[in-house]
Each structure stands twice: as C-alpha cells, then as structure tokens.
C-alpha cells in the first residue's frame, strides 16, 4: 500500500494536502524570520570582519568558524535541549528561528565580508580623504559597489537555509519535512512513504530551483557586464 504506483497512497496525500500546505507555510515562516536574524548577524559580523580593530575581527572569526565547523543539527539540539535543561526552554518555534538564524548568519557574514573586501582599497581611501566617516563611506561608496558581489551568493545562502529548515525535524518541528515524516508514520495517515517524500521534495524544489537559477543567471550577467566595462575602460584618446 506504500508503493510508488499505488493510487490509494496518492489519493491519501490529496486528502491530507492541508498537512503539506501547513508544513510549507511553517517552513517559509521560519525561513523569513531566520533570514532577518541571519541578515542582522551577517551585517554586524561581516562589518566587524572588515574593520581595522583586531579584537572585532577575532570575535567575528570565532563566530564564523565555530558555526561553520559544527553540524547545524548539533546547534539545534544544543539550543533546544541544553537550554531546556537549564530551565530556559525557548520552545520549538523560537529554537528554529534562532538556530537557523545564527547558523545562516555565519554564512551571510562571510558573503558580506567578501563583498566589502572586493572593493579596492583606493575607494576607501578616496572616501576618507574627502572626509567621509565610516557610515558615509559604507553607505555611499562601499556598499553600492559590493552589493552586486554580495547578492548572488547571498541568494544561495538563502536557498540553503530554506532546505535547512528540515533540520528542525530533530527537535520535533512543524516544518515541511517534519510534517511529512509525521504524516507517513501517523496512525491514520501512515504508509504513503514514497509519494509523500516525493511531494515534499517537489515542493522544496519548486521554491529553491527558481531562486538558485536566478542567482546563477544574475552572476553570469554581472560578469558579462563587468567585462564590457573593462573593454570600455581601456584608454580612449581625448
């Protein structure tokens, strides 16, 4: 009854389509809130990484390395169980926001650092020599130039984060994958393994594929445009 070609299994999924929709909504909600947290952390730690202060650089480095070199599942368990045992349980939903936000923030920070570092030093110096303070430099001169370097990889980070909502399964989340799992193992609903996972995968694919294709197209077109600028940039006589 769990077969890929069993009409009954597929029918059951159609009947319980609300479950999948709910999972999708939860996943997207988690993704949006976590994205905001990640952006905030990414901007703060990305700027710290590019500052002249050694101490700020080091703090940023530690955050990025610790987060990127431990499993996100572990980070979720840590937040959820460790905090729960210490009497400060943040709850599953908040755990999802925080864990994914903190995890993704480390990748955002790296993307933002690389973007800022892609701007030639002379641009910072020109801005300083005109009397722009840090905020003015960043706002008028550096960010507008680094944004095209930042946005394509940032889109990829977002795609990964959407997929990573499925890790909430480990703490009993209500995201798309967790609900799919509950569905196939449920007493009344159980059994439709293959169709259910296919549907779950298709939903993820439909969200992530357009985003990542968009990111890579964007990157290609930016590269082409830069080449054009470079050609135009070869000296012409006055």
């Amino acid at each position: 009854m769990s077969g890929l070609f069993s009409p009954r299994a597929w029918n059951k999924i159609w009947i319980y389509r609300g479950t999948f929709l709910l999972g999708l909504t939860n996943t997207l909600k988690t993704a949006v809130v976590a994205l905001l947290i990640a952006l905030l952390l990414g901007i703060i730690f990305g700027l710290m990484a590019t500052s002249n202060r050694k101490i700020l650089k080091s703090i940023s480095r530690v955050y990025v390395e610790v987060i990127q070199n431990t499993p996100v599942l572990l980070q979720m368990c840590f937040l959820y169980y460790a905090l729960a045992f210490s009497g400060h349980s943040p709850g599953i939903i908040v755990t999802g926001f925080l864990a994914l936000g903190i995890y993704t923030g480390a990748y955002m920070a790296e993307v933002i650092r690389a973007g800022i570092e892609s701007v030639p030093k002379g641009q910072f110096e020109a801005a300083q020599s005109q009397g722009f303070g840090y905020a003015g430099q960043m706002f008028y001169i550096i960010i507008p130039q680094s944004i095209k370097v930042i946005l394509p990889p940032m889109t990829n980070v977002i795609v990964n984060m959407i997929k990573n909502t499925s890790c909430l399964y480990i703490v009993g989340g209500a995201d798309l994958l967790s609900l799919t799992y509950s569905f196939v193992t449920g007493e009344n609903t159980g059994g439709s393994y293959a169709p259910a996972y296919i549907v779950c995968g298709v939903i993820f694919f439909l969200i992530c594929f357009p985003l990542s294709s968009f990111a890579s197209m964007w990157e290609t077109s930016l590269k082409k445009r830069d080449q054009k600028v470079f050609q135009n940039g070869t000296p012409k006589e006055a």
Partner: peptide, 21 residues
C-alpha cells in the same frame, strides 16, 4: 581627523580612485 580632513584637505591619487558606480 574626519572633521579636519573634510574641512581642510583634499587628495589626488596615483590611481585616480574615482567612484566607478
């Protein structure tokens, strides 16, 4: 420095450093 430089000095660099955007 930001205030004094803003009010009193400008600089021209070897590599021009115009804002390309």
């Amino acid at each position: 420095k930001t205030k004094v430089v803003r009010e009193s000095t400008s600089m021209v660099f070897q590599q021009f450093n115009l804002y390309p955007h």
